[in-house]
Design a protein around this nucleic acid. Structure first.
Length: 937
RNA sequence: GCUGAAGUGGUGGAAUUGGUAGACACGUUGGACUUAAAAUCCAAUGUCCAUUAGGACGUACGGGUUCAAGUCCCGUCUUCAGUACCA
């Protein structure tokens, strides 16, 4: 009976599905373990061999944990809102829901082929109204919350209203918009409803604000900071410009410190934590206010170096700074305006690319130094960013290179305030290495003390205070798209109102086209009336909502990261209609123990989901502070593209070795046309694409050899390898083993289909171990010492490997074990049963089949993991290399039972040792038990 | 520039964390079985010298610590990833 993997795999996949083998219960005597994959966006292209890598790793771990006696939650779902389906809808008119449904069906089919132990009864789809009902609910919760800095927690907005009514807002220490005006309780109580709403909006954790956003004209939408890479959109690579728009924002900045501190409590890689730290960008310093001479205005700056305040010789404002217009003198007006106009014209990208050119203009105005009262000229310059700090800096040319360059360029004086430091060539930025001079009360102090003193003195004259600044900006939450969650929001008198929770979900309306309206509204503007209650036959809501005639609805939709920020909790109780998940389920499953996914989400999804988790905890819906306890980034599997060389201007192609003799251009061709030796099937190429119909080839040694290039697996490079084909030809177990065998999980590595024969023949050998010719055959004879040694060596190594996520080395361990047992002609049931269990996380189908043939009724996945016993590994003797002065001369077989001294004695007595020593006395003898003997002469 | 990770055969990668470097696999070469191919099995395979026995050199490069270094320390170079006028 041969190893018929196709029928074996189909059989057990059907069995698992029918029996619900991997269904997790929300109550159990066993300890819980939650293993989660980053759920995929179901794209039209389907899966390539790179996608399942992380899923296979997590599946091995999940299966291992089941063997170890855990109640394992291992679900899967789809991040099914997104741009590609919408883009496709714009082009073809097909509703994104249909596209998405088809793509999901294809994904599911492919995933099932690989034999994952997912609990599909908990499947979630972010575009499913049953799911996004709760995304909308969380949005409403955020709207109804504010952040109390005193207690460092989010609270209900009704609490804030109560405080306002009793005390006004002066006692409140909240995270809010910056333009808060103080009011008393009496004033509050006299405000109109609209005025009250406008004020509350400045405190809510999701709020509407006219903000400068990243607008991408080609995509017709705004983008969050993490969706922009190098000044162009992450998706599509289109230019992004700054534009003022009224948008929903998430007050993630309220959580900056907790997001930073929380990193210490989770088991993520250093590089990932570092990315988040950089993104949050905490800097500690002071805010300092400078009075402007002959004006009532003050300029507030943020600095990390208040100790250098006596080195200030000028100030620089961002060109966009609001004070620029007010303080500019008439003599400088035209120059300033010209400069501002020129800066505005430059795109973000140009400004970023060109950091070397120093530019700026003097405003004609002067500020007053807080201590010396000397006049300080105020400049504007585009090296100061409007978006960071206050958009203004106090320039200390002796201590900051940018200020230094600016001062040199415009001939502004430079004061040296550092003891014994030469600043004739460049600024001195090393704060730890000197003491302050030339600085009145700071003279002779070191950086730390000077900073403290400076802040103290500033506070005394009411011109500054210690301040911590974060780079993290509030996240824009509106998208001008169709295929996303609609907001549960309508407007009365221009103020946003939440639709009552009882009416959720607010489902997406049908539209004729998926483009913005002619008047520039988002696609939802094409629908007349929605949020319609079909049962009552009226508009859903507290009131009638009709986007065109009565109350306007919010026409934006939520961004892609909305659903993915909380989906991990939905898996715990995926069918719940009354809560996002029941208290009991949340209490039982807590959070994700192991999360596996790509590292491209470092500053997006992984930050936003931490934010939402903390928020939901603050509002008492969760008891955990972090969503993902341990996180592993799997590396990308790269494609190996095949390149042919076309002689320029012809349809003639030359083999790789000959390409330098001609002027050629490189063309990528489909990797399926190439055999294992890089040889191109020229006939297949001709029929592959019309342009090759008449191709001629110049061969080397009768073959056309292609060039190879390792790059990202992508349709456009024709280097995509499909897992279905691999499963059909070698089986899912081979695919699973091979993906693990390829290399360390975290590392990027190229795919090479040729190598799969290695693991495939391993499975065949494994199969053979249980068969005598055509018949299944194991015997009841007692295992030999050798058998036991092989088995326990393997148990130990595999268990260690899985715990350390070194899945690649355990595949090798299995191969060695099977080779050894084959050589030992082992047919002992006792050994072979345990071996099957050991292998089952990696190759579950063959394990299940063999387990069944061994006469067991239950699934192998329910069996305990084999227990390692040290005693089987004890060896009676070992080869010791005998070295003289570090150089190995011969080896001796010595018993492990011998003590160090006995070994020494035996070695010294040996004739070869005496030969080597030649009568000399050894200086030192080093014996490492079980390893080595080194004699130093 | 800064931050993080990493440099080991023709290739992917091992090395119990300081103890015989190159496990395991691919590839290559030779052989067996076949009319042939596939499949399977066996052998060789870091480099150099040597007919053999054996020897020398070898983990990016240069130093150092140690009886012993791929592993630890100092310096240099290279690659990849992230990030950038952040005051």
């Amino acid at each position: 009976m041969s190893y018929d993997f196709n029928s074996i795999e189909a059989k057990w996949q059907k069995y698992w599905a029918e029996k619900g083998t991997f269904k997790a219960e929300n109550t159990s005597e066993k300890p819980k373990y939650y293993v989660l994959d980053m759920f995929p966006y179901p794209s039209g292209a389907g899966l390539h061999v790179g996608h399942p890598l992380g899923y296979i790793a997590s599946d091995i771990y999940a299966r291992y944990k089941r063997h170890k006696g855990f109640n394992v939650l291992h679900p899967q779902g789809y991040d099914s809102f997104g741009l590609p389906a919408e883009q496709y809808a714009i082009q073809t008119g097909q509703h994104p829901a249909i596209t998405t449904k088809e793509n999901i069906a294809r994904y599911r089919e492919q995933l099932d082929t690989i034999g994952f132990s997912f609990d599909w009864s908990r499947e979630v789809k972010t575009s499913d109204p049953k799911f996004y009902k709760w995304t909308q609910w969380i949005f409403i919760e955020l709207f109804n919350s504010w952040y109390d800095k005193n207690e460092d927690t989010a609270k209900a907005i009704t609490d804030l209203e109560t405080i306002f009514a009793l005390e006004g807002n002066t006692t409140v220490n909240a995270v809010s918009d910056e333009d808060i005006v103080p009011f008393t309780a009496e004033e509050w109580n006299n405000f109109t409803t609209k005025e009250k709403e406008a004020i509350l909006l400045k405190y809510r954790l999701t709020y509407l604000a006219e903000t400068e956003v990243n607008w991408c004209p080609q995509l017709g939408t705004v983008l969050a900071n993490d969706e922009i890479v190098n000044g162009v959109s992450e998706r599509g690579g289109y230019p992004v410009i700054r534009k003022k728009m009224t948008q929903w924002s998430m007050r993630i900045s309220a959580y900056a410190e907790r997001l930073l501190q929380g990193l210490q409590t989770i088991d993520w890689t250093d590089s990932l934590k570092e990315s988040q730290r950089n993104w949050i960008g905490k800097s500690v310093g002071a805010s300092v206010t400078f009075n402007v001479q002959d004006h009532d205005e003050v300029i507030e700056v943020f600095t990390t170096r208040p100790d250098t305040i006596f080195g200030v010789t000028f100030m620089t404002l961002a060109p966009e700074h609001e004070l620029v217009q007010k303080i500019t003198t008439s003599a400088q007006k035209s120059a300033i305006e010209e400069y501002i106009e020129a800066t505005a014209k430059r795109s973000e990208r140009e400004r970023m690319a060109d950091v070397k050119t120093i530019s700026g203009v003097f405003t004609g105005a002067y500020a007053e130094h807080p201590f010396t009262k000397e006049p300080v000229p105020i400049w504007i310059g585009d090296y100061v960013l409007a978006g960071y700090g206050t958009g203004a800096v106090m320039a200390v040319p002796c201590g900051d290179q940018r200020d230094y360059d600016f001062a040199k360029h415009f001939d502004i004086p430079i004061i040296n305030i550092f003891e014994g430091v030469d600043i004739s060539e460049e600024a001195f930025a090393d704060k730890e290495k000197t003491i302050i001079a030339n600085s009145d009360f700071l003279n002779g102090l070191k950086y730390k003390k000077a900073t403290k003193t400076a802040i103290y003195e500033l506070e005394k004259i009411n011109q500054g205070q210690g301040k911590t600044n974060y780079r993290l900006r509030d996240a824009v939450f509106s998208r001008q798209r169709y295929w996303g969650e609609p907001f549960p929001v309508y407007y009365v008198d221009g103020m946003p109102q939440m639709i009552d929770i009882a009416h959720l979900p607010i489902t997406l309306p049908e539209v004729e086209k998926y483009l913005p309206t002619e008047t520039g509204e988002p696609p939802l503007g094409r629908a007349d009336m929605w949020a319609w209650d079909t049962e009552e036959n009226k508009v859903v809501s507290n009131d009638k909502i009709d986007h065109k005639t009565i109350f306007p609805l919010e026409l934006n939709t939520m961004p892609g990261w909305a659903g993915s920020s909380w989906y991990l909790f939905r898996y715990m109780d995926a069918d719940n209609d009354t809560e996002f998940a029941s208290k009991e389920a949340l209490q039982y499953w807590q959070n994700v123990d192991l999360y596996i996914g790509g590292n491209e989400h470092a500053t997006g999804h992984l930050l936003y989901s931490r934010f939402w988790t903390k928020f939901l905890k603050d509002r008492k819906y969760l008891s955990v502070e972090e969503p993902f306890k341990k996180l592993i980034n799997q590396g990308m599997i790269l494609g190996t593209s095949a390149i042919v060389y076309r002689i320029s201007g012809s349809n003639r192609y030359v083999s790789k070795a000959l390409k330098d003799q001609y002027e050629t251009e490189e063309l990528r061709v489909d990797v399926s046309l190439i055999n294992n030796s890089d040889e191109l099937d020229t006939e297949a190429l001709k029929s592959w694409q019309p342009q090759f119909n008449t191709a001629e080839f110049e061969l080397e040694e009768g073959k056309y050899i292609v060039g190879r290039e390792v790059e990202k697996m992508s349709k456009r490079w024709y280097n995509v390898v499909n897992p279905d084909g691999i499963c059909e030809q070698y089986g899912a177990d081979s695919l699973r083993l091979y993906e693990m065998f390829l290399g360390p999980l975290e590392q990027a590595k190229p795919w090479n289909t040729a190598g799969i024969t290695g693991v495939h023949s391993f499975l065949k050998k494994l199969w053979k171990l249980y068969h005598d010719g055509e018949n299944f055959s194991v015997s009841d004879i007692k295992p030999t010492k050798e058998n036991l040694k092989t088995l326990h060596k393997t148990i130990k190594k595999v268990e260690e490997d899985i715990e350390n996520f070194s899945f690649n080395t355990s595949v090798s361990t299995f191969m060695i074990a099977v080779n050894e047992l084959t050589a030992q002609k082992c047919s002992s049931r006792e050994i072979l049963e345990l071996l099957v269990v050991l292998i089952s996380p990696y190759a579950p189908h063959i394990a299940e089949e063999l387990w069944n043939k061994l006469g067991h009724k239950e699934s192998v996945s329910t069996v305990s993991f084999p227990v390692f016993e040290e005693k089987h590994l004890v060896e009676s003797a070992k080869q010791y290399p005998i070295s003289f002065n570090g150089k190995t001369r011969f080896t001796l077989e010595l018993s492990l039972e011998l003590s160090k001294e006995e070994i020494e004695k035996t070695v010294m007595a040996h004739e070869k040792t005496q030969q080597q020593l030649n009568g000399r006395e050894p200086k030192k003898i080093i014996v490492v038990p079980g390893k080595i003997v080194n004699i130093v002469g």
